[in-house]
Simulated scan of single mutants.
Amino acid sequence: MAEIRLSAELRDKFGKGAARQLRRSGKIPAVLYGHKQESVHLALPEHDLFMALKTPNVLLNLDIAGKSQLALPKAVQKDPVRRTIEHVDLLLVRRGEKVTVEVPIATVGEIAPGGLLEHTLNSLPVEAEATHIPGAIEVSIAGLQVGTQILAKDVELPNGITLAIDPEHVVLHVLASPTAEDMAGETAAPEAEPAAEAPAED
């Protein structure tokens, strides 16, 4: 898995005003917590953090006042309009420690003609070593026929990784592709109701 080193600064100013000032200077407020330790408030370089977060479940190696700390991003707050990073929650981890994460599912191959693949899950909850989280879990869909389901227990996991979800949970299934008649039926205009007859005059 990817391990990216970031330089982190300790911060002692809080609140919306302090956060805005920090972001204007090209840094993002963050909080590091875990292992029953007191939370640590940090400032991270915006560009480097943005690039790092492009990798799912990226392992961050934080340089905090000359001391190295490993962390996983747990929550990323973004501006709803500009989609810029506003704040990040980081979970402190240690080498060899197991954590529960969601790993993206990557399908391989093509289903049989006439089918339509539906993802019930786009990522799979698993338990893995913090330093050995895969970037994606591959699932072969080659030749799958209409009506076929792939359950969580059917997914082949890398060594050392276990499911953190009900094994019977449906991950993928193949539906029948809609026919031209089906599509026409969905787009057809509803028939107009007959006009009510006017009451007879006395």
Rank of each mutant, 00 (worst) to 15 (best):
A75V: 06
Q77E: 09
D63K: 07
N61A: 11
L60N: 01
V76Y: 14
K67F: 02
D89R: 05
N61I: 03
T84W: 06
I85C: 11
I64A: 09
D63E: 10
A65W: 07
L60W: 02
A65V: 13
V58I: 11
V88F: 09
S68W: 03
G66D: 10
P80T: 13
I64L: 09
L70H: 00
Q77I: 04
A65P: 07
Q69C: 00
R82K: 11
L59F: 03
S68E: 11
T84I: 09
N61G: 04
Q77A: 06
H87N: 15
A71E: 01
D89F: 04
L70P: 03
V88T: 08
Q69H: 04
P80V: 14
K78G: 01
N61D: 10
V88R: 04
P73W: 01
A65L: 14
P73R: 07
V81T: 09
S68G: 02
K67H: 08
R82Q: 08
V81H: 09
S68Q: 06
V76A: 12
G66M: 09
S68A: 10
P80Q: 10
P80I: 13
V88G: 10
A71C: 01
K74C: 00
L70K: 03
L60Y: 02
L60M: 06
P73G: 01
K74F: 00
E86W: 07
Q69S: 07
K74N: 02
P73E: 03
L59T: 00
K78C: 07
L70F: 05
V81W: 10
I85E: 11
A71F: 01
A75Y: 10
V76I: 15
T84G: 08
K74M: 05
A65E: 15
V81S: 05
L59H: 00
D79L: 13
L59N: 00
V88N: 08
V81I: 14
A75G: 05
A65H: 14
L72F: 00
G66W: 09
R82A: 08
K74E: 06
D63I: 03
D89L: 05
